[in-house]
């Protein structure tokens, strides 16, 4: 069970993320019983078998996008996006697309190199669950990190969390105020 921040609270996640070892075929990876999140390639290769289970979600690598999963997105019990390195920002766009274009409303997990300084941006892009790498933060650090979700309380842009930009959200005073 991994500790994650879900909707602003620290909880234990019983979703097991099935990763692919070096040299292993994602499509052929062993998938245990129980609540699992499998690589996109595994889902695409074994869709009928996995879809029948009802407790299988999909995770996207940073170079994968929601297009490949389009038809199945609505029925996913969970979707996750891997951040192999925190400087790889493709996952932010993946989340925005899932939320705004593919209508996904279920649990959306950011995992991998997920750091405190990104929490605010990640949640504004539509991730409701943040799963830092195992052991990256002590319990005390994780407690403190919850506050980072609110680093910016009233941002300028429209985003998943703030569907309207500031100029539509708030009546702002002008030069003559």
């Amino acid at each position: 069970m991994s500790k994650v921040i879900q909707n602003g609270r620290i909880v234990s996640s019983d979703w097991q993320i099935v990763t692919v070892a070096e040299g292993e075929e994602a499509a052929a990876v062993a998938i245990p019983a129980g609540r699992v999140i499998v690589p996109l390639a595994a889902w695409l290769a074994r869709r009928d078998e996995l879809a029948a289970r009802g407790d299988v979600g999909v995770w996207f690598a940073s170079n994968e996008g929601p297009e490949a999963l389009a038809a199945d997105i609505a029925r996913m019990p969970v979707i996750a996006v891997n951040f192999p390195k925190f400087v790889d920002g493709r996952g932010y766009s993946t989340a925005v697309l899932l939320r705004t274009r593919y209508g996904y409303t279920g649990q959306l997990i950011a995992f991998g190199d997920v750091l405190r300084q990104q929490f605010n941006y990640l949640s504004r892009c539509g991730f409701d669950t943040l799963q830092p790498r195992e052991g990256r933060y002590s319990d005390a650090e994780l407690d403190a990190a919850v506050a980072n979700l609110n680093d910016y309380t009233e941002p300028y842009q429209a985003s998943v969390l703030h569907p309207q930009p500031m100029f539509r959200r708030i009546a702002r005073a002008g030069a003559k105020a």
Binding site: F86, D88, N120, Q157, M166
Partner: peptide, 13 residues
């Protein structure tokens, strides 16, 4: 400038 400042999607281009 306001649109780009702390844009959550485009901070790790």
């Amino acid at each position: 400038r306001q649109w780009a400042t702390f844009h959550p999607e485009f901070a790790y281009l």
